[in-house]
Each structure stands twice: as structure tokens, then as C-alpha cells.
Design a protein around this nucleic acid. Structure first.
Length: 112
DNA sequence: ATTCTTACA
DNA sequence: TGTAAGAA
């Protein structure tokens, strides 16, 4: 396992930590290496609101494991030839499905 | 040193 | 889409 969050690079033991919990994060460089994609791609994905990493310390992106998981899916699509505009379309459809699912759940609860 | 934004090929 | 310059 050569993929540990902001930590194992030989840096100090007390790297950046969350305010309350020990929620580890990855820098854009680590994510880029981990997913084997150029950093520019990750930034473009951010601009397209595919992921919304928190910003801190000089507007630097801090990716959580959750964001990386979403990134994996999207990058898998890009590797299959889906362009970024296509990704937007997929996300739009996904939002729609989520919305409809919620409406269904809502209705099922109401008809009891 | 690493990342950020903006711009260009 | 990938790379560069210059700032933080």
C-alpha cells in the first residue's frame, strides 16, 4: 500500500489535520498519482462541479476519500472516451434519477 | 517544494 | 487535452 493520505512522505508526524476529527485528505498531487491522471484533469473536473473538494490553506484543494471515489467513476468514463461535456450530461441525468427516486419515496410514504 | 489561476497550442 | 508562466 503505497497510498496513504497526506502523511507518509516522510513529513512531520503531525501533518495537516481536521479541526475536530482526524479526517485525512489527499492533495491534488497525490490524487493525480493515485488515479494516474494529469492534475489539469482534476482541476477541470472541479470546474465542472463533478467534485467539490474543500479549500483551505491558500485555496488548495483537499480531496477526501469520498471525492476520490467519485473521481474514480468519472475518470473511468473519460478513459472509455466520454468527454467532459459528456460527463456533465451523465451527472445531470444522475441528478434527475436521484430527484425522481426521492419523489417516489415521498409518494410511497404518503399513500401509506 | 507544491499548488493555484490563467492562457495558449 | 496537455503544458507553461508567474504568483501564493
Amino acid at each position: 500500500m503505497a497510498s496513504a493520505p497526506e502523511r507518509a512522505a516522510g513529513a512531520s508526524d503531525d501533518a495537516q489535520r481536521g479541526p475536530a476529527h482526524d479526517v485525512p485528505f489527499y492533495t491534488i498531487g497525490q490524487v493525480a498519482t493515485l488515479l494516474d491522471v494529469p492534475q489539469a484533469q482534476l482541476r477541470r473536473l472541479d470546474d465542472l462541479e463533478v467534485v467539490q473538494p474543500e479549500r483551505s490553506t491558500g485555496n488548495q484543494r483537499r480531496y477526501t476519500q469520498d471525492e476520490i471515489d467519485r473521481l474514480r467513476e468519472v475518470i473511468e468514463l473519460t478513459d472509455e472516451g466520454v468527454t467532459l461535456p459528456g460527463i456533465r450530461k451523465v451527472l445531470e441525468l444522475r441528478r434527475r434519477v436521484d430527484e425522481l427516486e426521492q419523489q417516489l419515496a415521498d409518494r410511497d410514504r404518503a399513500e401509506d
